[in-house]
C-alpha cells in the first residue's frame, strides 16, 4: 500500500503535478503561444478542489515573466474587458477553469520569447496555505466559444 502511494506520488511529480495536501489539483496547464516579440501571454488550466472548503488562488509566480497576475475577462457594454482580480475562487468539491475569455494567469514581460513546445514553470499559491508547482507547455490555442 505504501509502495503504491509512493508510486503515485512519483508519477504525479513526474508529470509536473505536485501533491500538496491533496485538496487542490491542476489539470491541463498550458501557455498560449503568442507571436514573436509579444511581451505578454496567458496561462490556462483547470483547478480542482476535492476538499470540503472553498479555496482561493491568491498568487502565481513564474521565472518566465517579470510578473504573473491573476486576471479575468468580463463582457460589458459590448466590449471585452480584461481586469486584474485579487483571487480566483475554487469551490469546495468544485472546479474552476482558467480559459480564454475568462480567468487566466497573465504573464507580463516575458523574460524570453516562447516557442511552441517550450515548458513554463509556474507556482500557484492558495489561501489554504498550499501551493502547486506545474509545468505548462506552450501551445497554439484555438478556441471557439458560444
Amino acid at each position: 500500500m505504501k509502495r503504491l502511494f509512493l508510486a503515485a506520488l512519483c508519477t504525479s511529480l513526474w508529470t509536473g503535478i505536485a501533491l500538496a495536501d491533496g485538496a487542490i489539483s491542476i489539470d491541463d496547464p498550458q501557455v498560449r503561444l503568442v507571436p514573436p516579440s509579444t511581451e505578454n501571454t496567458a496561462v490556462f488550466m483547470r483547478i480542482r478542489n476535492r476538499g470540503d472548503k472553498d479555496v482561493n488562488l491568491l498568487r502565481a509566480e513564474s521565472p518566465a515573466a517579470k510578473t504573473a497576475e491573476l486576471h479575468t475577462v468580463i463582457e460589458e457594454g459590448g466590449m471585452k474587458k480584461m481586469r486584474p482580480v485579487a483571487n480566483i475562487p475554487i469551490k469546495a468539491k468544485g472546479e474552476t477553469a482558467l480559459k480564454p475569455g475568462d480567468y487566466h494567469v497573465m504573464l507580463i514581460g516575458l523574460t524570453k520569447p516562447l516557442q511552441e513546445g517550450d515548458e513554463v514553470a509556474l507556482t500557484l499559491k492558495f489561501d489554504d496555505g498550499s501551493s502547486q508547482s506545474v509545468v505548462a507547455p506552450v501551445r497554439r490555442i484555438h478556441v471557439t466559444m458560444h
Partner: peptide
C-alpha cells in the same frame, strides 16, 4: 491590440 492576451489572439487564430 497586440498586448491583448485574449480576444485578439482568439479571434485572429480563428
Amino acid at each position: 491590440y497586440t498586448s491583448c492576451p485574449d480576444a485578439c489572439p482568439t479571434t485572429l487564430a480563428a
